[in-house]
Amino acid sequence: MVPCIQASDVTLTFRPKDREAVTAINGLTLEVARGEFVSIVGPSGCGKSTFLNVLLGLLKPDKGEIQLNGKRISGPGEERAMVFQEFGLLPWRTVLANVELGLELKGVAADTRRKRARGLIELVGLTAFENHYPHELSGGMKQRVGLARALVTEPEVLLMDEPFAALDAQTRDLMQTELLQIWDRAKKTVIFVTHSIEEAAYLSDRVVIMSARPGKVKEVLRIGLPRPREYEMRLSPGFNEIKSRIWSTLKEELVTRIGGDGAQR
């Protein structure tokens, strides 16, 4: 069977004007099966967001390519949607209108898209705020709007860039549970970037650990925990074992990164 996502040797260098070029990812190779939940962890600046943007079709790699269902990704497509790290809400749109964006661009009729958007706004617990503008929301609320906006288009592949980073611990637990349910029910493929080792271990089938910049896959860990995941699993010795394995691999990269950056200056 063709994997859902097949990234081979993806390399991308940013060349900002009047500044030094930065190779964000270098030779990243990764396969993701259909319906799989894969998390990516790695030091800050190692190219996680960059990789997601290539997957989304907003950035073109200098070398290598990513295939989606056997076809090379050459631009955005409606089978993919992203929850953006910096939210990316349109300030001139209310919560409702922001969530409707994807459906509107697809040409879905106004009443249908309103209904579907309301459903997701309820799911993320923002019904009372549907007529508010983004500047009237807290960081965590904005993030949930971004989540609802990505889910409403019912993408086959969900790209999530630290989608729960701005949430308080309780809301985060709630949203994790919701996400797992949606993933299970709708059989989505999820690529989930996070800085939380615990979150990665709890949610994923596999955790990808990236090396420091220029990023590539350093190690992939399969998480053997049974499904459906239960909150109590986090308290088991097995879970702690997984966490410490991820941490020990990641730690080497953090040391490299900090040392490397220091030496450059």
């Binding site: 943007n53 989304l56 955005p76 409606e78 949607a81 953006f84 910096e86 990316g88 964006l101 661009l105």
Partner: peptide
């Protein structure tokens, strides 16, 4: 970022 958001959800030049 907002331009990219609209583009990623299928927005064309006109959008």
């Amino acid at each position: 970022l907002l331009v990219n958001v609209v583009r990623s959800f299928g927005g064309k030049e006109k959008d």
